[in-house]
Each structure stands twice: as C-alpha cells, then as structure tokens.
Amino acid sequence: MAPSLEEPIEPVDDALTSNLKQKPALVAPEPEHCPGPESNDAGKSDACAGCPNQAICASAPKGPDPDIPVMTQRLAGIKRKLLVLSGKGGVGKSTFTTMLAHAFASNPANTVGIMDTDICGPSIPKMMGVENETIHVTSTGWEPVWVSENLATMSVQFMLPNRDDAVIWRGPKKNGLIKQFLKDVEWGELDYLVVDTPPGTSDEHLSVNSYLKESGVDGAVLVTTPQEVALLDVRKEIDFCRKAGIRILGLVENMSGFVCPKCTHTSEIFRATTGGGMRLARESGIPFLGAVPLDSRIGMACDYGESFFDNFPDSPTCKALRDVVINVGEQLGVDAVDILGDE
C-alpha cells in the first residue's frame, strides 16, 4: 500500500470556478454553508446551486456513515475521550498529550490510550519510546502498542515499513485510516482516550469529530504558546470547536518563559505581547488551565522516549504540568486523587 502521488484524486478541477472566484467581495466562502456531502440535503440545499460537486453529492448515498454504529460499539468501553488541539504546529500538542497520558497512567487503577491522528507527522511513538514497534492483527482487531501496563498507543508510524517514510496522502485516505483506528483497534476497557491531532482545522479534525460524535467526546484541550503568531491560529481553532460543537475544556499555555539554567533569569522567549493564553482564554470565555514553562529537559525526555513526569518530578515544569492535569480533571469532574493516584 505504498502511497504515491499518482493516486487518483476526486474530480475537483471545476472547483476552480466555484463561487469564490465570482464573488465580487473578496471574502472566502464560509464552509459551514455546505450541508456536507453525507447529509440528507447534499446537492439539494440552496448553497449547492452552482456548486461543481452538486451532481456528485446529489447522487451519493445518503444518511450517516454506516460505520459509525460500529465505531460507537467499539469505543463503548472507553469512559472519557479527550482531544488535544491547536491551530498552530509545534506548540507542544504531542508533548502535552504524552504528559497528560503519563499523568493519568501514574495511577495504576487507570488505563489510558493515546490515538495519534497526525498522519503526516506522527510524533507520539517516538515520544513514548516505542518507535520501532509494529501492530499485531488478531482475529478481533488491531492490537494497540502498549507502552506500559496501563498505557496503550496507536499511530500510523507503527505501520510504516521504514521509519522515515513519508506518508503522502490526501484527505480521504487519511480519513480512512482514522476510521480504522476507531473501528478496528481493540482498545478494550479504557478510562481515558487522549486523541492527539495535527495542526490546523481540516480533514483529520472533521473526521475525528464526526466519527466520535455518536459515542461522545468529553472535550478538547487547546494548547498554545504565548506569542501572537500562535494565538492567531488558536483563535481559529476555538472558532472551529464552537462551529463543530466540541466542548472546550480549556487552554494550556506552553513554552511560557524560560529559566536560564545558569543565572535563573527568566526570559520570555516567545513573548506574550498581546496578553498570551490567559487573555485569550478570558476574551473567548474558556477556562485557562495553566502555563507550563519551557524546559530543555522536556525536549530531551521526548527525544529519548522517556516520561518527563517520572524522571523529574520536582522540577517547576513538572509541578506546573501537574496543576494543569488537575485542572483538566476538574473540568471533567474527576478528583485529583483519581487521576494522579494517592501521593
């Protein structure tokens, strides 16, 4: 199943003549007006008039995806499902996902799963130190890779023949894989499923949301860095969550401030010139879960696939993370003791 560029793509040539070009006011069309190719109105609503895809949509099979009930059943054993989102790349979504999972898993009574939906740039396996594992297919489905007794992961990385292979896939193919992650993976009984996402607001996000709608997402944690360039994209992600009806558990500010290891002077590498995550959270009326300072040891721990939580429990960064995790628990209505175990 070597992905290649020659893969046939949907007929979108005539999409170039869509209303975007004819609209005199140069404002991008609002995608929410499209009823969605799988809805009952596909090809029939007002917005479809003149859409080059109208004929395709109108003739496509209607109704919800027949696989959704299958997925819902497969995921029935999962108590809580969390999304980790950010409009911006490299702000620490994956790092935060692993931290959150390690924190949940630090209580031996919890079983935790991580699903990596970043198809083109999967980082979770490396951060978990299971980069070279492969998936076992059993009669009941795909067995996720277990990092420890109570921590399972699933990522496209486990399916690549070579570690550095590029996954050059267009949207529909990515959606297909995400669907398989939800439909075919033998997650079993989990207390938490943390879903790591790629940056942006596109196929992966829409698919995860629509596939999980039935079984219910408990909420999304948004990750940002303090500078405006990142906040700009996170604002878009908040807008996306609102439009998609995903509950936002709160906003985490990562990489806020760096303590020089020599002189302990705190520098704001990514300066919060516009008030940072705190102000964004206040403006958009979502909870602020905390600020996590930059620590070069986190990067190191991730590179070697070790748990920062277990290795540096006394560092200020770890304390900040612990607070964030407790705040996440609070939003979910879970006691700190249940999350972190008795300490």
Binding site: I9, T201, S202, H205, L206, I238, F240, A244
Partner: peptide, 9 residues
C-alpha cells in the same frame, strides 16, 4: 479569528 474548515478538495 475565522476558522477555515476545509477538507482536501
């Protein structure tokens, strides 16, 4: 602040 929620095509 508008999100551009577009699929591939």
């Amino acid at each position: 602040g508008d999100a551009v929620v577009w699929r591939g095509p």
